[in-house]
Amino acid sequence: MIKLKQVTKTYETNDSLVKAVQKVDLSIAAGEIFGIIGYSGAGKSTLIRLLNGLETPTHGTITVAERNMNEISGRELRKARQEIGMIFQHFNLLWSRTVQENISFPLEIAGLSKKERLNIVNELIKLVGLEGREKSYPSQLSGGQKQRVGIARALANKPKVLLCDEATSALDPQTTDSILDLLVDINQKLGLTIVLITHEMHVIRKICHRVAVMEDGKIVEQGKVFDVFQNPQQSMTKKFVNQVIEAESSSEMIGNLLNQYPKGKIIRLTFIGDTAEMPLITNVIRKFDVSFNILQGKVSQTHGGAVGTMFVHVDGETEQVEQSIKYIRQQKVKVEVLTDARITS
């Protein structure tokens, strides 16, 4: 559905060249939810704007829904854009128009008659769950409702691709989840390809099938979300993954735990996929004469499996403790024994 080959975008400022996007290769399949994550300034905003021609590449080719976005212009480009929906961090609704009129806007651009527009608008209002708010103005809506209008507006011309530019970054966690659920819902109902950019790993974890990590205009790592969570390669990726799966583990916190439990051992377990769902602790207690005390932990669901970490205090005969740790290792759970504020395996 989307293919980028060696795409580079450089800006000229007064005295220097800014390389916003550097030699990016990307391939996104139809029906996929693809996430691009990076901190601000990583070039992800530029990258997503290259996909609908709001930015033109300095080098490289961009194909979206069988159109060469880097070659077309004028009427053809406008036609292509009608088939690519886009939603924004700050919603970008027209405040002078009601919900209904806002959703109708892209249909006016496409040149549909008033009657056709009304039919589609009513359908979309139902799809995004805004019944009863048709005549409201954006200023009368909450952030989540505004983004629903944004989504309905982006879907009006039945696009093949939906671009999400930090679509949940201005929303609170609960609203974020409801908007993400809606995105998954339309992805499944309409078979829509979704490309989203974000700086929150939570968003990637919750709905994306694949993810690309961006740093300094380059894609440093990409793959299935679960694989990336399981085995992050780059330090940037590890930072993002830790946002989600890591229980709080500052050296201060570990130091406190060690002081609190002078006897026995404190270990950190990292669960991935199937191992996250197996009754590991029960098995250990049954097999060995040790006490097992869960200090803190966090397990998150991703598209493809669960991942998580847990801090545990193991106490008992030294021999038994060593045996139990060995057993856990055999279960493909990563074990790290904490000795001082640092972690040793």
């Binding site: 886009m86 700050h90 970008n92 027209l94 806007f105």
Partner: peptide, 26 residues
Amino acid sequence: DKGVIEAAKAMGAKTSTIIWKVLLPE
């Protein structure tokens, strides 16, 4: 808001549409 103009462009609006339906009403 520049974002509103950008949104109209992203929808495939012509400049005349942006003037009449975005710039002047907004």
